[in-house]
Amino acid sequence: MDFFNIVIQTLDSTIRLSVPLLLACLAGLYSERAGVFDIGLEGKMLVGAFAGAAAASVFHSAFIGLGMAILISVAFALVHGFASITHRGNQIVSGVAINFIAAGSTVILGQAWFSQGGRTPALAPNERFEAIIFPGANALRGVPIVGPIYAELISGHSVLVYLAFLAVPFTWWVLFRTRFGLRLRAVGENPAAVDTAGISVAWLRYRALICTGILTGLAGAYLSMVQNGGFVKDMTAGKGYIALAALIFAKWKPVNAMFACLLFGFLDALAIRLQGTPLPLIGRVPVQFMQALPYVLTVVLLAGFIGKAIPPRAGGVPYVKER
């Protein structure tokens, strides 16, 4: 039974760790499917996390915090759009710029407003998103096998966790079953064709970026208002880049994205659990190896050794209308 508990706990932390990745990964999905590369997922998550925690602690409301996280994150996404869609700038450069501005401004403003070394004040329970306990979860906890799975894995997460997993089928539906989704995918493959059909390429891409901003805002809010009761300097710690890796790993498909994020979250959870404990046969696995594994796997995939990852065809290319 002890082993079973360890498994449950590891899977539980897998879910918790993969949620921010999943939200950011889906965010990247919208923008890259529309043909706009987004290295700036990391930065947008970070400003989302900061804005969320700051607004929640000032207005004493988790929902105002969430709204602010989304608002600021969308604003940064629009800056990316302004540079890379309107002014046809280099999308990678713009993304790098956004990451820098986010990393610097969150600390500077945090220090200026709250004077806690770049942190925001610790959030009170009503300023955070609390865990939702499903009906009967506590009663069923004693039941073997099913009980812990229901009580630990399925119940007892915050609303943002459920939202993140619901966003997967929703994104699939939007992309593959709506007119907007069809056009969005088309603009990432062949913008000239979309333009010929009389649809504005720029406006379509801007809308995709707004979706990206909303989702990165959610991801940031999850980090600072659910996982951690407040904002801490550089709290995204490369999650935006792991999400990018997961997006490639998932070959730009929503359901795959969920599994990729769960896999990377699982590796992270495993790394935490295995810290210092030797494994049978293999011996002690260095933590650093586990931390590097998502990136190594992505490179291997990119190299075409596990299937081939083919990005949207017009990705990274600014659209110039022929006259």
């Binding site: 800056v79 302004f82 540079a83 890379s84 002014h87 046809r88 700038g89 280099n90 999308q91 450069v93 713009s94 790098v96 710029a97 956004i98 990451n99 820098f100 501005i101 986010a102 990393a103 610097g104 401004s105 600390v107 500077i108 220090q111 200026a112 770049g118």
Partner: peptide, 25 residues
């Protein structure tokens, strides 16, 4: 004291944005 070295990070970001991504603006 209100301005830490992170101000430089912002300036870098802005330089990358305006000199790089928005160079044609």
């Amino acid at each position: 004291p209100a301005i830490s070295r992170d101000m430089i990070v912002i300036i870098q970001g802005l330089v990358i944005l305006f000199a790089g991504a928005l160079e044609h603006m």
